[in-house]
């Protein structure tokens, strides 16, 4: 889809995940597609933001890209090879190159083990450094995320939320990964602490040439950190492209609505009611026909219900799944 160099490090093709549920007396099956037909690729040094509201499938997508969840359809290719080709020890070996940072800084660290031991796990599992150098490497990692070396001896509960999130980052970096999935890593943090962690991630991306999938519902953070952005709605990517274009001149009406709904320090002097999207996310168990967004879309028409809109290229590397793409006249921006 993208001819632009460099070649992708990780590439998802037609990815879908169906969480089948059973209903009723006889256990009739019902499909609940959390993610559907998602194609996305990341190159080294690139940070792609996944934006969407809860239930849009962004976390499931992140877990599938990392191989923590098996896709129902489609494939994930890492360095040109399908993740499902790996198994057992080979798969665990590959795990060194892909790491994850979680949202909840209180749940992502084992409360019963010291911080240093948890960071050392990855070093030992993959023999990153010789056994006698593990302690020194742990110290280096802890200092890399701006914590004192003495932190290694302590348990997670002795740290604040922001510090725990740095520890989680240090743990992820221990195996010297090429690809990191950060699932809402700053959502649970206070504003001033959020900035610390965002800056840390920016530095690391620059210094380590990481590919990062940054999942968030906070548009401001995403815009700040990411080079490319994919907007998801009801399991599908509705718009994807360079951050400046997607946020500057959004092509999909949902992207526009999301931008307009996000509170700003400088509230726009526009009648507030105009930029508020009515209704709520439809149930993934019972999605609308055609375009998933049509039930809430301000510019929907009959044709939208006919079929899922195909992607249209707005510019190289910028696509939108809307039959009427482009900045709407008189839009909010």
């Amino acid at each position: 889809m993208f001819d632009t160099s460099p070649p992708p490090l990780i590439e998802a093709v037609g990815l879908g995940r169906n969480f089948e549920t059973r209903h009723g007396l006889f256990g009739q099956r019902r499909d609940v597609w959390a993610v559907r037909d998602v194609s996305l690729s990341l190159a080294r040094g690139e940070t792609v933001g996944i934006v969407g509201e809860s239930g849009c499938g962004k976390s499931t997508l992140g877990r599938m890209m990392l191989g923590l969840e098996a896709p129902t359809t489609g494939t994930v290719r890492f360095d040109g090879r399908d993740l499902s080709d790996y198994s057992g020890a080979a798969r665990r070996k590959l795990a060194r190159r892909m790491q994850m940072v979680f949202q909840d800084p209180f749940g992502s660290l084992d409360p019963r083990r010291s911080v240093g031991a948890q960071i050392a796990d990855g070093l030992k599992t993959h023999s990153i450094v010789p056994p006698e150098a593990v302690q020194a490497e742990v110290t280096r990692l802890i200092e890399q995320v701006d914590l004192p070396a003495a932190a290694a001896q302590r348990r997670p509960h002795e740290f604040s939320g922001g510090q725990r999130q740095r520890i989680a980052v240090a743990r992820a970096l221990a195996t010297r990964p090429d690809f990191i999935v950060a699932d809402e890593p700053v959502s649970a943090l206070d504003v001033s602490i959020q900035a610390q962690v965002v800056n840390l991630l920016m530095d690391l991306r620059r210094d380590l040439d990481l590919a990062m999938l940054f999942i968030s519902h906070d548009l401001h953070v995403v815009r700040h950190l990411c080079t490319r952005i994919a907007v998801m709605y009801l399991g599908r990517i509705v718009e994807e492209g360079p951050a400046d274009q997607v946020f500057g001149t959004p092509a999909h009406p949902y992207t526009r609505a999301l931008l307009a709904a996000t509170p700003s320090l400088h509230p726009r002097q526009q009648a507030a009611a105009d930029r508020i999207l009515p209704g709520e996310l439809p149930s993934p168990a019972n999605p609308p026909s055609g375009c998933p967004f049509r039930t809430r879309c301000p510019i929907a028409e009959d044709a939208c219900a006919a079929s899922v809109p195909a992607y249209r290229d707005m510019a190289p590397g910028w696509r939108s799944a809307c039959i009427k793409p482009g900045p709407a006249a008189g839009g909010p921006r």
């Binding site: 923590l68 798969r91 979680f102 749940g107 660290l109 796990d121 993959h126 743990r171």
Partner: peptide, 13 residues
Amino acid sequence: LDFVTAQRAMGTH
């Protein structure tokens, strides 16, 4: 819990 997922993601046996 996330810290178990983190171990899995790390490739721990």
